[in-house]
């Protein structure tokens, strides 16, 4: 290392000093501490006492843990594909460069600015079984369908029924796809024009172009957005927590049949309501591993399919 290099290293480290400090204290230490606490019996008020693998052993037989994991996975596997479809479709439509595009874009983006707590409060009202807007909108549709096909579909009491509560939450989350739409739109606008023109000469229609040009070219963006959606969906906390009124509602903190009990909620409950911080850490680490595993899986799957310009 030359003197010059050494000096650069020193200055570089100086600049990222605040980050290093934060990194060690707010990322590295917590993960290590979490590992240690997960092997302890630890409540807020007492010192952590080492108990070995017992927390993990208990986890295996804890139905609520499995339920929360199941709920989280169901929620994520509903939200991620649906979110992709909705946001990509919207981005494709916006990419037509029509009159009023800016207004449309702003309107679609607006909901993703709404604070989580407000979002939950608004959607608790939207999804009310008796007077909510959602049911007001779908009940004529339901009557029509029932008369037509002869089914007997009644608009549900969304947040009071196990299956519908989760769907309601997905609906509320879909309202906030604006972020993803904007990112997709930026990706779409980077697709080289000449590719389309070449395809048009070959007589390709819109679907062909989307399937064979657009999607491959924006695949890195899709990958990025999906990973972000994955991390977000696995941490979902505020909206279901507030929707269930912090456990003050008649259904308790997990909602009807605990269908809104997510991993984050369960961690929070164990840490701050049930005085089981060690156990909470163990669940947290499992969550971490699950997210890590799924991300790696996604990376592996997409390795052959994501197209990077220049490769």
């Amino acid at each position: 290392m030359t003197a010059m290099e050494g000096k650069r290293l020193r200055i570089g480290l100086l600049f990222i000093g605040p980050w290093i400090f934060g990194f060690l204290l707010l990322s590295v230490y917590p993960v290590v501490a979490s590992l240690y606490f997960s092997l302890c019996d630890y409540s807020v008020l007492s010192r952590p006492v080492f108990i070995g693998w017992q927390n993990y052993g208990d986890l295996v037989f804890d139905e609520l843990f499995w339920k929360s994991l199941y709920n989280t996975i169901v929620y994520a596997s509903l939200l991620i594909p649906l979110g992709f479809l909705v946001s990509f479709a919207l981005a494709l439509m916006l990419n037509f460069d029509l009159r009023g595009k800016g207004v449309f874009r702003a309107v679609i983006f607006l909901p993703s600015l709404v604070p989580m707590v407000c979002l939950a409060v608004i959607w608790r009202w939207m999804l009310n079984g008796e007077f909510g807007l959602v049911n007001t909108l779908i009940s004529p549709l339901a009557t029509f369908l029932n008369a037509w096909i002869g089914t007997d579909f009644q608009p549900p009491s969304w947040l009071q029924e196990a299956v519908y509560a989760k769907l309601g939450l997905v609906l509320a989350s879909l309202w906030c796809v604006g972020n993803a739409v904007v990112i997709y739109l930026a990706g779409l606008q980077d697709v080289p024009r000449h590719l389309y023109e070449a395809a048009e000469i070959d007589g390709a229609n819109f679907w062909h172009k989307t399937r064979h040009i657009t999607i491959p070219v924006v695949s890195p963006v899709i990958y990025f957005n999906s990973i972000m959606a994955l991390i977000g969906a696995f941490q979902v906390f505020a909206v279901p927590y507030v929707m269930m009124r912090g456990g003050n509602g008649p259904d308790g903190i997990g909602g009807p049949d605990r269908s809104l009990l997510f991993i984050s909620t369960y961690i929070y409950q164990n840490a701050f309501d049930y005085w089981n911080m060690g156990y909470a850490c163990a669940i947290g680490l499992i969550l971490f591993l699950v997210i890590l595993g799924l991300t790696l899986l996604a990376t592996k799957i997409s390795a052959n399919r994501v197209y990077y310009a220049g490769s």
Partner: peptide, 26 residues
């Protein structure tokens, strides 16, 4: 530098619920 930066990006992967308890005790 770029390796350290990758490390920085990796911290984005840590979900807050995981480090909630250690943050609290800190």
């Amino acid at each position: 530098r770029d390796k350290v930066f990758l490390l920085a990006l990796a911290t984005m992967m840590i979900p807050f619920p995981v480090i909630m308890v250690p943050h609290y005790s800190l």
